[in-house]
């Protein structure tokens, strides 16, 4: 499509996620590499972040960070979590389209 995609920072482990999220801002996705819904959501998020290039995009691989999955009580993936200064301001599980994402992000 030609737009610049915000690169997802997914350099998380169970050892560092608490420290990394302590002051986090932006959108965090809990995903798995073999999850088709995650792939579909990620494609939509490419478009979302092309319109929000300054919003940090973070990703936690549930297979890499089971501790984080447990702490955040993630039972459905993909789950999006919005962070502001390290605080969770909203979360939503499952697929959504670009309009839904804009509304979700805009209302929090």
């Amino acid at each position: 499509m030609g737009f610049v995609v915000q690169k997802r920072n997914e350099d998380f482990t169970d050892k560092n996620y608490r420290e990394r999220l302590n002051s986090a801002n932006g959108v965090l996705i809990f995903f798995k590499k073999n999850c088709p819904a995650c792939k579909a959501l990620d494609k939509m998020l490419e478009k979302f972040f092309s319109g929000h290039p300054d919003v940090p995009y973070l990703g936690i691989d549930c297979d890499v960070c089971p501790g984080a999955v447990k702490e955040y009580d993630i039972v459905k993936i993909p789950t999006l979590v919005l962070f502001e200064k390290g605080q969770v301001t909203a979360r939503k599980a499952g697929l959504m389209n670009l309009k839904g994402m804009e509304a979700f992000y805009g209302s929090n």
Binding site: C35, P36, A37, V69, V75, K76, P78
Partner: peptide, 14 residues
């Protein structure tokens, strides 16, 4: 969040 349609995605939570 506990109603699912993808075992590959969400099965390991259970």
């Amino acid at each position: 969040e506990r109603v699912h349609s993808c075992a590959v995605c969400d099965g390991s939570a259970y």
